[in-house]
Design a protein around this nucleic acid. Structure first.
Lengths: 119, 119
DNA sequence: CTGTATCCTGTAAGATACTG
DNA sequence: CAGTATCTTACAGGATACAG
């Protein structure tokens, strides 16, 4: 076919695009943290705010909206005296669990690794 | 023992910290792309530049340095006529493969998902 | 070819204050 | 409690030119 195997295949491009797509959906400093938090249990806005160290209300709100748009997170308003809102992962959001899990695993062993280096 | 289970456990904090640690190491727009590219095969600077669409020399250089500092990537200078430099994942860098793989898998199915939605 | 040195800019994200 | 509205800023990242 003439071309000098500039790229080994379309497979390469697919590979790259997939990484990019995933990164786009999880872009920013907070989305993975939020998903990680919700993967442990559904939470109210305030709980998320407390649980995710350092996040501002504005950021949390915005990121949750992004996640909702992508159908990763479900938002439900509860009719308590002052209203309460609960966020939880959708089934689709839970499909991110393997990524989260691998990142948790890696992060933990990485920290261990660094500790050993300091010996 | 008096605390009202504000957090279910230290486990929560560990979980969060692990995600944060991993994100720190892979921070920025390009590192994961680079690691992803190198996970397929070792490459020269120019090859990476071509392979990773849109990256500027400065960014590539800087990100590769970061990755090298964290011992994820190995840099070796080859003595060709104009020198050539080869980058490859270290054994440690290859330990990121599961994360990459999960992201590739998710990204691919996500794209499929979106396509179906458009039907 | 493999970078480094500048310069420049958009935007992610922080701080603060306010509303239903 | 659950957000929104502004204002501000730092810094990641882009463009370009040049060096070993």
């Amino acid at each position: 076919m003439g071309d000098e195997t500039k790229y080994s295949a379309e497979a390469c491009e697919t590979h790259h695009r997939a990484i990019r797509d995933t990164m786009d959906v999880l872009s920013g400093k907070w989305k993975l943290r939020i998903v990680g938090s919700l993967s442990l249990s559904k939470k109210r806005f305030m709980e998320l705010r407390n649980h995710i160290d350092g996040i501002a209300a504005k950021m949390l709100s915005k990121e949750l909206q992004d996640l909702e748009i992508n159908n990763l997170v479900n938002r439900s308003v509860i009719n308590t005296k002052p209203i309460t809102v609960e966020y939880e992962l959708t089934a689709y959001g839970q499909s991110l669990k393997p990524i989260i899990d691998e990142m948790v695993i890696w992060g933990m062993q990485h920290r261990k690794q660094l500790k050993n280096k300091l010996t």
